[in-house]
Deep mutational scan, measured.
Amino acid sequence: MGFKLLSKLLVYLTASIMAIASPLAFSVDSSGEYPTVSEIPVGEVRLYQIADGVWSHIATQSFDGAVYPSNGLIVRDGDELLLIDTAWGAKNTAALLAEIEKQIGLPVTRAVSTHFHDDRVGGVDVLRAAGVATYASPSTRRLAEVEGNEIPTHSLEGLSSSGDAVRFGPVELFYPGAAHSTDNLIVYVPSASVLYGGCAIYELSRTSAGNVADADLAEWPTSIERIQQHYPEAQFVIPGHGLPGGLDLLKHTTNVVKAHTNRSVVE
C-alpha cells in the first residue's frame, strides 16, 4: 500500500471513529477524501466538511520552486461564519470567499490569524475590503508590521502568557507558548472536538522541520505538551499544512522538532 493511500485511509478511519463516538456532533463529509496538494491548482481553494458547521479550507501556493498546501478553518456561528487564517495570499483568499459563498452561503463576518507569517495573514486586506472584521493577538499584529505583512485590524486580548485561553464565538483560542513562531495560536472547536494546530503542528508525513527561522526550538516541545494537557479530548487535529489526523500529530511534531534540534547540535 502506497504512503499517500495509507495517509488518506488514516484520515478516513479517524473521521469514521469520530462519527461513531459522537453521532450528534459529527456529520463528516462523505463526498470524498481530504484534498491534497496535487489536486488543488494554485489560485483555487477546496472546502472539506469535518463536522456539522465545521470545515477546513485548503489552498496551495508556490514557494521556492515548489507547491505547498495550506489549511485553515471555518466555523459556523449562528447565521454567520468565523474564518481562521487566510488562504495564503490575496488571490487565494478572494477564491476562498467565493467558494464559501458557493458552498455554504453564509457571510464571513470575523477572521482570526493564528500567527504573523504570510500563509496566515496574506489576504487580510481582501477580507477587510469584503467587510470582514480581522483579528490577531497584539504580538501577531506587531510582528506582521515588522515583517511588512498585512496586519489584522483588531487585537485579541488575554493571550499574552503561555497557557492563556479565551473564548471567541464558537471557538476557544489558546496560546501554548512559542513553537513554530513566538505568537502562534491554537484554535479548538469544543462542539466538535476539532483542534486546529496551525503551523505549530505537523502532518504525519512530514519528517523535516522546514521553516524554523522564527521558531523557538527549545520551547516548542513544552508548548505541545500544554496543548495535549489542555485538549486531551480532541479527536480531529488539523495541521497548518497537509493531512489531518488525531492527537498523534502532536507527538510526531515533537519528535521531528527534537530530531532537528539534535542534528543542529551535532553539526
Rank of each mutant, 00 (worst) to 15 (best):
Glu99Pro: 04
Glu145Ser: 14
Tyr196Trp: 03
Gly245Thr: 02
Val132Ile: 11
Phe236Thr: 09
Ile224Pro: 00
Asp64Val: 08
Val67Gln: 15
Gly65Arg: 08
Ile50Gln: 05
Ile151Ser: 07
Gly53Asn: 11
Ala234Leu: 06
Thr207Met: 12
Ala178Lys: 11
Ala95Gln: 12
His241Asn: 03
Ala51Asp: 09
Thr93Ser: 06
Val126Phe: 10
Thr36His: 08
Thr253Lys: 02
Gly105Ile: 03
Arg76Val: 10
Ala111Trp: 04
Ser155Tyr: 09
Tyr68Asn: 08
Leu24Trp: 06
Gly53Gln: 10
Ile238Tyr: 03
Asn92Phe: 00
Thr140Asp: 03
Ser113Tyr: 02
Asp29Lys: 07
Gln228Ser: 14
Asp52His: 09
Ala19Lys: 15
Phe116Cys: 03
Asp118Leu: 06
Asn262Pro: 10
Asn262Met: 14
Thr254Cys: 06
Val45Asn: 02
Pro232Ile: 09
Val28Leu: 07
Glu99Asp: 11
Pro176His: 04
Leu106Lys: 14
Ala95Trp: 09
Thr222Leu: 11
Leu173Pro: 07
Asp216Lys: 08
Gly65Met: 08
Ala178Gly: 14
Ala66Gln: 15
Gln229Tyr: 12
Trp55Ala: 01
Thr182Gln: 14
Ala95Leu: 15
Asp52Lys: 10
Val11Cys: 14
Val265Leu: 12
Trp55Phe: 06
Phe168Ser: 04
Ser30Trp: 07
Asn211Met: 10
Pro190Arg: 13
Ala165Cys: 06
Val54Glu: 01
Gly169Arg: 05
Ile186Gly: 03
Phe3Lys: 09
Asp85Glu: 03
Ile74Val: 08
Leu81Tyr: 03
Pro232Leu: 09
Ser7Ile: 08
Val11His: 14
Ala178Trp: 07
Ser22Asn: 09
Ala98Phe: 13
Ala234Ser: 09
Ala200Ile: 08
Gly72Pro: 03
Gly197Ser: 04
Tyr48Phe: 11
Ser27Ala: 15
Val124Glu: 03
Val112Leu: 09
Ile238Cys: 01
Gly53Tyr: 07
Ile17Asn: 08
Pro138Ile: 07
Glu99Val: 13
Tyr68Pro: 03
Leu159Cys: 04
Val67Ser: 15
Pro221Phe: 06
Thr253His: 02
Leu73Arg: 00
Ala21Leu: 13
Leu204Glu: 15
Ser208Val: 12
Ala59Gly: 15
Asp125Arg: 07
Ala15Val: 07
Pro35Cys: 05
Val121Leu: 05
Glu172Thr: 06
Leu47Trp: 02
Gln103Asn: 14
Val189His: 06
Glu145Asp: 13
Ser223Tyr: 03
Phe3Val: 10
Asn92His: 00
Lys258His: 11
Ala94Cys: 04
Phe63Asp: 15
His154Gly: 10
Arg142Glu: 13
His154Val: 10
Val54Cys: 02
Arg120Ile: 00
Thr222Cys: 05
Ser56Trp: 15
Pro107Lys: 15
Thr60Asn: 14
Val124Asp: 04
Thr134Lys: 01
Tyr196Cys: 04
Leu204Lys: 14
Ile224Ser: 02
Val266Arg: 12
Ser7Pro: 08
Ser137Asn: 09
Leu250Ser: 01
Ala25Asp: 12
Val42Trp: 05
Arg167Gln: 12
Ile227Trp: 03
Gly65Glu: 10
Lys102Pro: 06
Pro138Asp: 08
Ala19Met: 14
Phe168Thr: 02
His252Ile: 02
Ala111Arg: 04
Cys199Pro: 01
Tyr135Met: 04
Arg142Trp: 10
Leu83Cys: 01
Glu203Ala: 06
Ser27Gln: 11
Thr93Asp: 01
Val187Gln: 01
Leu6Phe: 07
Val171Ala: 06
Glu267Val: 04
Val124Lys: 02
Phe3Asp: 06
Arg128Asp: 10
Gly240Ile: 06
Phe116Leu: 05
Gly43Gln: 08
Gly32His: 14
Gly53Ile: 08
Asp125Pro: 03
Leu159His: 06
Asn92Cys: 01
Trp88Ser: 00
Thr253Gln: 01
Gly158Glu: 09
Gly65Asn: 10
Gly210His: 04
Glu172Cys: 03
Pro41Met: 11
Val132Phe: 03
Ser22Cys: 09
Ala209Ser: 08
Glu33Lys: 14
Ser7Trp: 10
Pro23Ile: 07
Gln61His: 05
His252Pro: 02
Leu24Asn: 15
Asp52Met: 09
Thr140Pro: 02
Val54Ala: 06
Asn255Cys: 06
Ala200Tyr: 05
Pro35Asn: 15
Val121Asn: 03
Phe63Thr: 08
Arg263His: 12
Ser205Val: 08
Leu10Asp: 13
Ser191Gln: 12
Val42Gly: 15
Gly245His: 03
Val45Phe: 02
Ala192Asp: 07
Lys251Ser: 11
Leu83Asn: 00
Gly158Lys: 10
Lys4Pro: 06
Asn71His: 01
Gly246Glu: 12
His180Gly: 00
Ala136Ile: 03
Val194Phe: 04
Gly78Val: 08
Val187Ala: 11
Ala21Val: 14
Thr207Gly: 13
Tyr175Pro: 01
Val124Trp: 04
Val189Asp: 03
Ala21Cys: 15
Gly122Tyr: 07
Glu44Asp: 09
Tyr231His: 05
Thr93Tyr: 00
Leu204Met: 13
Ile40Pro: 15
Leu10Met: 10
Leu24Arg: 10
Thr261Trp: 09
Thr182Arg: 12
Pro176Asp: 01
Leu83Gln: 01
Ser208Asn: 11
Tyr188Val: 03
Gly240Arg: 04
Val54Phe: 03
Arg263Glu: 14
Asn184Leu: 01
Thr253Asp: 01
Arg46His: 09
Ala192Val: 13
Trp55Cys: 02
Ile74His: 01
Asp52Ser: 11
Glu39Trp: 12
Thr222Asn: 13
Asp64Thr: 08
Ala259Ser: 10
Gly158Ile: 04
Thr222Gln: 14
Val237Gln: 01
Asp29Gln: 08
Ile238Leu: 06
Asn184Glu: 00
Ala19Gly: 12
Lys8Pro: 03
Val37Phe: 15
Ser27Asp: 10
Leu243Ser: 14
Ser38His: 10
Ala133Lys: 14
Leu73Ser: 00
Glu101Ser: 12
Ile238Ser: 01
Leu81Val: 12
Val121Lys: 00
His252Val: 02
Ala234Gln: 01
Tyr188Cys: 03
Asp85Ser: 00
Ala136Ser: 09
Tyr196Ile: 02
Pro190His: 07
Glu44Gly: 15
Tyr12Gln: 07
Gly246Met: 07
Pro152His: 03
Ser113Pro: 06
Leu156Asp: 02
